[in-house]
Design a binder for these strands. Structure first.
Lengths: 218, 218
DNA sequence: GGAATTTAATGCGAAATGGTACAAAAAAAT
DNA sequence: ATTTTTTTGTACCATTTCGCATTAAATTCC
């Protein structure tokens, strides 16, 4: 019932930028680490199939500590999802903002997506898609976040395609919004297929085909 | 605890093609109707978030009857999924087999898909996608069915595109397999978005854009 | 050292869950 | 009418689940 790293106090001060010197008993866990573990569990099993006992075991926090730190199961799920979105956004931001050629950017975006979705003994897929596909989406607050996730991705792709069009990488007839939806659709299809354990090679082939169509076949 | 239609025995004989004249106490439910109700519940909330009490209430069968008729919860889920697949296949078979122009066929396929995915206060999306995102990861038998579902759709689309290419509706450079994956991706993206309650109009716009790209913009 | 404060840990309790045992009920067969 | 067969319906059980109340521990401030 303890997080792996029972840090020596000295190391802790190094890790924590501004040693807070808080007043009561010190935490036995780092919230960021615990949240990452919770996220991983939710991604594996979904909201309903993940019990607080599972979460407690995985985070190394006992139940009351979980409540104290994150609130109830639903709040923890929401915070986990926000963390997921933050991580995913951070992983892709550079590429979305880079000025590499369209093909190259798309290729890199999908490579990162596949890193997030596949691998390990039970591939995690996309948490936004999983949440949309589950009962969690009937919660209005969660649904709003999921919708925001869709829109965010659509927009990022749309900006890509718009820029590429201006640069002459795409024909004048190309519609950036339509292409963006196709690019998102490709994200969604590989996320779902990854969950069904379709091998990464196959997913990469799907991605390659999609890129060819979106950029005009090589 | 009774299905709506407490059929008069006379009507029953009309409904049932070959009146079985079985031996014991007659069933108070029709298995097909009950399975449809169970499917609807599973589609709304998924496996884990659907309780046997929910299923019992929805089907009008009490728990022991559910077990007797369908087996345990997992078996009921599997049978519900098979039913879903059968229904979906039946709804699309005619169009996939028709020889209408490519654009027309795609348009009709997606219209039917949207009929299945949207509508009601909590749209159900695609059950194959839902299952892929949840139970398919850990349950090999379910995963196999889901994979089969993906392949079946991919193939149906591929046949469409291959035929269209032979007819000259597509340029020689078009790759039917790649286009089929894009068509499936479009199915997947609208299925997921539908669950997040994206209005049908928006989904239709996504579909229209995808069709334009796949068939060569109008 | 003692008070104050924050967290950990134990454990409880009410409700829900999946599954089943068993008796009552409803039909056909004898 | 009685028996046989099949299904229903009630009740139950063991387990799990979520959430919290309470106590013990660890640290800072005075």
């Amino acid at each position: 019932m303890v997080q792996k790293n029972n840090k020596p106090p000295a190391a802790a001060k190094i890790a924590a930028p501004a040693a807070p010197k808080r007043r009561g008993r010190p935490r036995a866990y780092e919230p960021e680490v615990a949240l990452a573990k919770a996220l991983d569990l939710f991604r594996r099993d979904g909201f309903a199939a993940t019990s607080l006992d599972d979460l407690s075991a995985a985070t190394g926090m006992n139940r009351p500590s979980l409540y104290g730190a994150f609130g109830d199961k639903r709040e923890l799920y929401i915070k986990s999802y926000q963390r997921y979105r933050d991580d995913a956004r951070a992983a892709m931001a550079d590429i979305f903002r880079s000025d590499a050629p369209l093909r190259e950017r798309l290729k890199r975006i999908y490579a990162i997506a596949l890193d997030i979705y596949t691998g390990g003994e039970s591939p995690r897929g996309c948490f936004t898609v999983m949440t949309a596909a589950s009962e969690a989406v009937s919660d209005p607050a969660i649904r709003a976040m999921v919708l925001e996730g869709f829109v965010e991705l659509d927009k990022a792709f749309a900006i890509c395609f718009r820029l590429a069009k201006e640069r002459g990488e795409l024909p004048g007839s190309a519609d950036p919004t339509v292409l963006a939806h196709l690019a998102s659709a490709t994200i969604h299809t590989i996320a779902i297929r990854a969950r069904a354990r379709v091998p990464r090679k196959e997913l990469e082939a799907i991605v390659q085909g999609a890129i060819d169509v979106m950029c005009g076949a090589k």
